[in-house]
Computed example of a mutant assay.
Amino acid sequence: MWDAIVNAMVKLFNGLHQFIVGLGVPAEREGLSYILAILIFTVIIRLLILPLNIKSTKSNARMQEIQPEMKKLQAKYKNDPQKLQLETSKLMKENNVSMFGGCLPTLLPLPILFALYRVFYSITPTPGADLSFLWINNVFAPSGFNMTGIILAILAALSTYIPSLLLSKSMPSPEEGGMNMSTMNIMMSGMMGFMSINFQPILVFYWIAGGVIQLIQTYFLNYLPAMKKQKAKEAAALASKPNKTTITTKKKKK
């Protein structure tokens, strides 16, 4: 099954590369043509998982809405974990909330990353072709602990951390003792930065491009709606407060 997936991805990527070359990119500039192919490949993958991102956003929004009910259940069945689990599952099912639906779009790019790791090692560039891109001498040769590798590692870490940071800002602040999302974001970003040192640069470009696309999606699907909702709440709270000028005027009349 895994080999079939890798073979399908090899065919897709090679087809995209031939398409790029057919558009007029010089055949000997394989570094540039392969990078353009991986960028298009990343866009295709992200478009395919976009419905999952939208579903995840809706699921997370419903999860936030039922938080008061979940807290009531936790207080009511604090001494009966089995009953608490049963009632929580029932509440989530009634509100069409999935426990894992919010995590799937975040985790899905990882197996694709490892599949691409095999894909790129199975590709044989044309002997003597120019495999450079920007400051990178060879997009298929792992950079290691040098300036090229360090720059790619920093970009990989930032492209992981910034979308996660934006997502955490669009969610309610966790209560004391809850999960520390900031620590998890830093750990995940550091892990990706460290792993990228041993990855081929073209594979790191896939991850960076995916991070940029994820950042855009997070802004429009999560952050922007959350900020609009927050402003609406603040406006409603402000409108419900008594007007000090009106109160003062009434007191003077008395």
Rank of each mutant, 00 (worst) to 15 (best):
M1T: 08
W2M: 02
A4F: 14
I5L: 15
V6L: 08
N7S: 13
V10D: 14
V10K: 15
K11F: 12
N14R: 10
H17S: 12
Q18P: 00
Q18G: 01
V21M: 10
G22A: 11
G22W: 06
G24Y: 00
G24E: 03
V25E: 02
P26Y: 09
P26R: 10
S33D: 03
Y34V: 08
I35E: 15
L39S: 03
I45S: 11
L48K: 07
I49N: 13
I49V: 12
P51C: 03
P51I: 05
A61I: 03
A61M: 07
M63L: 11
M63C: 02
E69Q: 14
L73G: 04
Q74D: 02
A75W: 08
K78Y: 08
L84E: 03
E87P: 09
L91N: 05
L91Q: 06
G101I: 01
G101A: 01
G102K: 04
T106F: 15
P109K: 12
I112Y: 09
L113R: 06
L116I: 02
R118P: 00
S122W: 01
I123Y: 12
T124P: 05
P127V: 01
G128Q: 04
F133P: 05
I136L: 12
N137L: 05
V139A: 11
N146E: 10
T148H: 15
L152I: 04
A157E: 10
S159G: 09
T160Q: 05
I162T: 01
P163K: 12
P163A: 07
P174E: 13
N180I: 03
N180G: 06
S182T: 15
I186A: 15
M187G: 12
S189E: 10
G190Y: 11
F199Y: 12
I202M: 09
L203Y: 07
L203G: 06
F205M: 15
Y206D: 00
Y206A: 00
G210C: 09
G210M: 05
I213D: 11
Q214R: 07
Q214A: 14
I216M: 02
I216H: 04
Q217G: 03
Q217D: 09
F220L: 02
L221F: 15
P225Q: 08
K228H: 14
K229W: 04
K229H: 11
Q230G: 01
K233G: 10
A235N: 10
A235F: 04
A239E: 05
A239C: 05
S240P: 08
K241Q: 12
N243C: 02
I247T: 13
T248N: 13
T249Y: 11
T249K: 14
T249A: 13
K251F: 13
K253L: 13
K253M: 09
